[in-house]
Amino acid sequence: MESTSTNPRTKPERTAIEITGMNKWYDKFHVLKDISLSVTEKEIIVVCGPSGSGKSTLIRCINQLEQYQEGTISLFGEKLEKNKKGANLVRDNVGMLFQNFNLFPHLTILENCTLGPIWLHKIPEHLAIEQSTALLNRVGIAELASKYPGQVSGGQQQRVAIARSLAMKPKIMLFDEPTSALDPEMIKEVLDVMIDLAHSGMTMICVTHEMQFAQQVADRVVFMADGEIVEEGPPEQVLKDPKWDRTSLFLQHILSH
């Protein structure tokens, strides 16, 4: 709980994500300024910072949901091109979770999970159902499989979204504020699943304000402000002994809340 140096998980030296010199502008507004970040396999990174600091944009760029003008992203040593090959590379390796869950409302929870495996991995339907049911079991909502997303609570929806992403067997998971649209009593059930995922050896980048979660599982905390990485390091250092005023001010706001 207190320190990552005692973390028993062995870490191979393979680099999962390598971002170098990334710049992005919305028209004239400079959203991401010279971002460089390297994530090793099985590492858990928590990205935090005030709103508008470019955290979400950063991980949306990794998932190719947004275009960036300068810099490169590599996944497992392969450079991410802006073409079909790059899209396949992202698709095979990266899963993403959203603040608003973004489940498909016209499909049942099970269908939400099996859609990708059936059509993209070409898995026979009965096998896909089997695997997805196992995943729904893992996130603790197997009994809701035949319901529609609109019929279950926010926390349950977010857990379905996790199962849906996991069904595609990603090596890297990106979380874009997965708990900030949830009622307080539902945050824990989602965090529990995320912690479980972290312990299973998933490479994760989480944009979140849940500092408890950061302390518990993060290997590194990255603090962003105004499109720059202001500070990064092990959670105990960034959270308890920040070097920069911006960081400590932000942490005071969050923790006093």
Partner: peptide, 23 residues
């Protein structure tokens, strides 16, 4: 249809036609 639906379909890896037809 909200942009989130497109995002979710894209991050699942569905291409243009499958996104349109299924989602």
């Amino acid at each position: 249809i909200s942009r989130g639906q497109y995002d979710a379909a894209k991050s699942l890896g569905l291409g243009y036609w499958r996104t349109m037809i299924f989602i």
